[in-house]
Amino acid sequence: MEQHYVRRSGRVILADAEDRILLIAYRGNLDPLYWITPGGGIDAAESPAAAAARELGEETGVRISAAELGAQVATASGHLDIPGWLSGMFREDYFFHRLGTAGAALDTTGLLEYESRSIVEYRWWRRDELAGTDQTVYPLGLIELLDGLLAGRTPAEPVTLPWR
């Protein structure tokens, strides 16, 4: 029996030429601050890769096609209760993309109003910074996944990451 998800998302683990990863500091109405990869909800009849590419463009101004993302590298799913919005099973599908330059000029003009209110900061993180932070970073297990991705190894099958 196929799992019913109340929300599916496509997300991008975005690396630059210096092996830094772009994360977004996010704070919802009642949430403490946490860091996430660019991405968001899948629209009707949209593939996870198409949603990830679209959301990357909207949230950062980095425009790429779903085909440029390549194969899905990871997934995470589990129950989440966001009061006043959604409650149930969520699933996030992750893709990896490396920019050919160090960092990128970010354009946030494509953000939705609630995103503009909730996003606190954008930051390029080095692996050692991520490994040493005491701040909450999603997806859990990102560091272990990064080791292979930054070395140019794409998993044969998407890795299942722990849920929140």
Rank of each mutant, 00 (worst) to 15 (best):
W124V: 06
I82P: 02
S77N: 12
D93C: 13
P162G: 03
V120Y: 12
E18R: 14
G148H: 01
Y26W: 13
Q3I: 15
I82A: 07
P38C: 08
S116E: 15
I119R: 12
G132S: 15
G103C: 07
A66P: 00
T60H: 06
E115K: 03
P155H: 00
E2N: 13
G141Q: 03
E46M: 04
P158K: 03
V159C: 06
L33I: 15
L86V: 07
A25Q: 12
G152M: 01
A51H: 02
A74M: 01
Y26L: 11
I82G: 05
Y114L: 10
E157F: 08
A74W: 00
G103W: 07
I64L: 11
G39Y: 07
L106F: 01
D93G: 02
S118K: 09
G40E: 06
I143A: 15
A44L: 14
G84I: 00
D134N: 15
G39C: 08
A151N: 10
A25K: 10
G41S: 15
W163F: 10
A50W: 05
A52I: 03
A17N: 08
Q135T: 13
T160V: 14
Y138I: 11
P158I: 05
L106A: 04
V137A: 08
P48Y: 01
V159G: 03
T60P: 00
A52C: 10
L22G: 02
P38M: 08
T154S: 13
R98D: 00
F96A: 07
W163D: 00
F96Y: 15
G28D: 11
A131R: 14
D19W: 10
L30S: 15
G28M: 03
R8V: 05
G57M: 05
S47A: 06
P162K: 05
F90M: 09
W85P: 10
